[in-house]
């Protein structure tokens, strides 16, 4: 069976190394936080200037001065720290952040990422921290559905949407399979409710079977 977004989030959460410093992108990637093992030691970074961000705030906990990058009220944990925006992005660019998990419109076989703009003339472009995160974190994981609403694969030979970063993606977690972007090509690590051959027929990218 294919994975729902919670099962994808759980899979990613279990792949994040213990004690890693991690940024979770706005949208579905934030679900990963709910599935981190209690003793994972993972420290969450939010680009608006905080490390060791806690869960979403509720009721009396809500403080307009304490929010995440999606502008959702959050909480502090013991060991939280605050810093200004230039430091926050220096942390990413400087290679201090271990993992970021981002959503995507498309990922190419070479690891190019398109996730900030559809390029449609009516759309108001907004990039936020997507480009900085894409090139900054040591490992970039993408979390997305494998197929768009029209059935086309979002893992492509060359992105047709405007790029966020070139050759920056390391892994692509989808509802039907997990892909590793390697120097040798795109390796299918595992599939969910679909055979390797079916996958190869529906995804317009040369896929490599996992090494045995």
């Amino acid at each position: 069976m294919s994975l729902d977004k919670h099962a994808m989030a759980e899979l990613i959460a279990n792949d994040i190394p213990r004690g890693a410093y991690v940024n979770l992108g706005i949208g579905q990637p934030t679900l990963v936080a709910d599935h981190l093992p209690a003793d994972s030691g993972v420290v969450l970074h939010t680009e608006n200037g905080m490390l060791n961000m806690g869960p979403a705030a509720t009721g009396d906990q809500i403080d307009p001065d304490l929010m995440n990058a999606g502008k959702i009220p959050v909480t502090e944990l013991p060991g939280s720290s605050y810093f200004h925006h230039a430091d926050s992005f220096a942390m990413m660019r400087g290679g201090h952040l271990d993992v970021c998990v981002l959503g995507a419109f498309q990922v190419s076989a070479a690891g190019d990422l398109a996730n900030w703009h559809t390029g449609e003339p009516e759309a108001i472009p907004a990039v936020g921290g997507a480009m900085d995160l894409a090139i900054g974190a040591k490992s970039v994981f993408v979390m997305m559905t494998l197929f768009a609403k029209d059935g086309s694969a979002k893992l492509v030979e060359k992105c047709s949407y405007p790029l966020t970063g070139v050759g920056c993606v390391d892994r692509v977690y989808t509802d039907h399979a997990t892909f590793l972007i390697t120097p040798d090509g795109v390796v299918v690590r595992e599939t969910f409710g679909i055979s390797f051959d079916e996958l190869a027929a529906r995804v317009p990218v040369k896929l490599l079977a996992p090494a045995r």
């Binding site: 925006h85 472009p125 921290g129 900085d132």
Partner: peptide, 18 residues
């Protein structure tokens, strides 16, 4: 923006800060 009454210079967030 849609009415063409304001100019937009879009800058990635980290570049804006740096």
């Amino acid at each position: 923006y849609r009415a063409g009454k304001i100019e937009l210079d879009l800058v990635p967030q980290g570049n804006l800060a740096e």
